[in-house]
Structure formats: C-alpha cells, structure tokens
C-alpha cells in the first residue's frame, strides 16, 4: 500500500490539497513546504493558509482579502 493509495483510510493519509476559491485565493492544507525564490522557507503560522492569486496582497505570498477590493476575477 503506497501513500497515494485511495483505499487507505483518509485519517492515515498526509496528502496536501490546494483549493482554488472562486475569484479568491488558493487554500493550502496539509504538509507543504512553502519557500521563496531562493528556496528559503516562508514563515507559516497556521495549518491552512491562503495564497494570493490576484497579485495585489500586501502580505504576499499570503492573501489579505485585497482581491475583493479590486474586483479580481479568477481566470
């Protein structure tokens, strides 16, 4: 049985997920290493994080809700 085996009970799996919120950020859950362009780890303070998708967040790579103020529409 591999880690990706879908028959494995969900509580035992450590797979990460990325959820694309309509016209909003990417929600990232699970064991994912976030690094900057030099490979340095990005501080992560919570289990589930929202990554900016509109490009206008003041706290990139995280979302700060600015997509709502600028009327961002996801492709």
């Amino acid at each position: 049985m591999t880690a990706d085996d879908p028959t494995r009970p969900p509580t035992r799996r450590r797979t990460a997920s990325v959820t694309a919120c309509p016209d909003g950020p990417l929600l990232v859950r699970g064991d994912v290493e976030l690094v900057d362009d030099r490979g340095n780890p990005v501080d992560r303070h919570r289990a589930t994080v929202a990554l900016c998708r509109c490009g206008s967040s003041a706290i990139k790579p995280y979302c700060d809700g600015t997509h709502k103020a600028i009327g961002f529409e996801a492709p």
């Binding site: 919120c21 929600l27 994080v49 929202a50 706290i59």
Partner: peptide, 16 residues
Amino acid sequence: DEHVEADAVHEQIAGR
C-alpha cells in the same frame, strides 16, 4: 496583523 492573514483564510472556509 494576525487577523489580516488569518481571516483571509477563515472567510473562504466560513463562506463556502
């Protein structure tokens, strides 16, 4: 500052 980041996550989970 914590709420700027945290609630951008929470609002998506709470709404959807």
